[in-house]
Design a binder for these strands. Sequence first.
DNA 1: AAACAGTGTCAGGAAACCTTACACAATTGT
DNA 2: ACAATTGTGTAAGGTTTCCTGACACTGTTT
Lengths: 104, 104
Amino acid sequence: KDKKVITIGIVRDLTGLSERQIRYYEERKLIFPERSSGGSRKYSFADVELLVEIANKIEDGVQTHEIRKEMLRAQKKQNQNDVTRKMIQGQLNAQFGLRKGPSS
Amino acid sequence: KDKKVITIGIVRDLTGLSERQIRYYEERKLIFPERSSGGSRKYSFADVELLVEIANKIEDGVQTHEIRKEMLRAQKKQNQNDVTRKMIQGQLNAQFGLRKGPSS
DNA sequence: AAACAGTGTCAGGAAACCTTACACAATTGT
DNA sequence: ACAATTGTGTAAGGTTTCCTGACACTGTTT
């Protein structure tokens, strides 16, 4: 689902957006395709879904600038969650976890 | 998962097969990509997995001809299951199902 | 021995993709 | 009011990717 395997033409067909729009949203740092060795963009299904969300917001008059801020906020929250989870995991390991060496 | 959105170059990278091989297996009717309006092949993730299975069998010395027969057998069984399910569904509908018209 | 299977490789051509640039209406900022 | 920015279309010129068809070659099957 996160593997980047879809070319821009297919993304165009899947989303109904123009290639111009898709590239522009990348320029505005809303989406981050990978590149083939030759330079062609490659997107994931998650990217396609994100693009649809972006397109909806833009239709609602939200600017790419605002959308980017929203995304950063959302991602920050996500990172915070990750950190929290890892800290808790670390605590659990410290209390009850197995050592790395053989526990003979 | 069954949406045909992957081009042959990506499939090559994902499977490690050569494009020649991928096209040949299609010629032998083991795989059925869709085509873009311009004629480019488009594969699904399911296709990619199937290709890997095919490649494994061929490495084991099984011929495409045999692989095709296996696939037909497997698919026949699947179809039979589908038919059975539909028949049972039909029976249930006949016994207890709603009519098509308004059930006033 | 003849036919077939599986794969590599090459050639010529078409489709798909890339970047850059100009244009232009609509919106935003000063 | 005016300048700057946003979002999108479109065109040119160039590179990458994909297509089909053909020839070659090594094994395997008939």
